[in-house]
Design a protein around this nucleic acid. Structure first.
Ligand code: MN
Ligand code: MN
Ligand code: ZN
Ligand code: ZN
Lengths: 152, 152
DNA sequence: CTCGCAATCTGCAACTCGTGCAGACAATCA
DNA sequence: TGATTGTCTGCACGAGTTGCAGATTGCGAG
């Protein structure tokens, strides 16, 4: 996602208005690596702008996504996550707390794929599952399967 | 997922009862490669057993999943998909119709991963996106990137 | 084979996440 | 400053899934 200033210009150029709500959301997202949900962003936004509507947060996120400024991730049950990082990258998801972190993968083309016959791929996403550093120490590196808890 | 007969034995062994509803669902899932949603399975089941409850379908799916007989896929917004194929495999998802197909990937270990520091992975899932054969011919084909070649 | 209990099934309410809608509101520009 | 849109907000609604309770039934004991 581009900087708040660049986004402001881009919105203006498209005939979209610059509102304090949008500007706030631009700021909250810029450089944000937490892959927040709409609700999470709403909480952040509400702290700085009491009265802002969750509907507005959703609307702005949708606008940004359709402008290609952020990607929407649906990697697990529950709320979608929004990612202002639109570079080519992948994710690791904690089975315990749901945290998402960025992962960069190289030599993807070295893999051998069977069964795509007739399918025209335009991309591939890798999601690593496991335990994040925090949850790994909290829980003695026990069972590596079976748990599917979600964060709240 | 094992055969209906094997599952029947497994359920009995765990003190779970064998009901006609469960047996029907075993049969509908065995060898099913369509990655159906709960609703889709409910439709199939209703055809053979009018009056069966959607709730029961969900319940049985949850039971099977917690026994490790099937995996639950949340790869996109919308309903979860259920996969009786628990071998090591991956998926390709059509952007147009949502169809999921199995994909087998080899030489995964050849990839180079950065950013996992401290994260303890227990698995990785690849999802290819694009157009399935049907939708690709229906629609004008958009030019693809080179993310995924090496098909065999 | 019948009985009785616990597991299961069913229908419905409730819940989460997201979208549609309409009227109040406000950014922009003449 | 006023007119013109686009935007914001609050609420209703919809999809997907789970919680609950009463009716039903599998199945082991007798
Ligand atoms: Mn990311
Ligand atoms: Mn599969
Ligand atoms: Zn964690
Ligand atoms: Zn398709």
């Amino acid at each position: 996602m581009r900087s708040p200033a660049d986004l402001t210009a881009a919105f203006r150029q498209q005939g979209l208005k610059i509102t304090p709500q949008r500007q706030l959301i631009f700021r909250l997202l810029h450089g944000n690596e937490e892959h927040p949900s709409a609700e999470a962003l709403y909480e952040l936004a509400s702290a700085q702008m009491p009265g802002i509507s969750l509907r507005t947060v959703y609307q702005t996120l949708t606008d940004l996504a359709s402008m290609g400024e952020l990607q929407v991730l649906s990697l697990a049950p529950g709320a979608q996550r929004f990612d202002p990082n639109v570079t080519d990258h992948h994710h690791a998801r904690c089975n315990d707390c749901g945290q998402l972190r960025d992962v960069y993968v190289e030599r993807m083309l070295d893999i051998e794929v069977h069964g795509l016959d007739g399918f025209q791929p335009d991309g591939a996403a890798i999601v690593f599952t496991g335990l994040c550093d925090v949850c790994a120490t909290t829980r003695p590196s026990a069972d590596l399967h079976q748990h599917t808890n979600n964060s709240k």
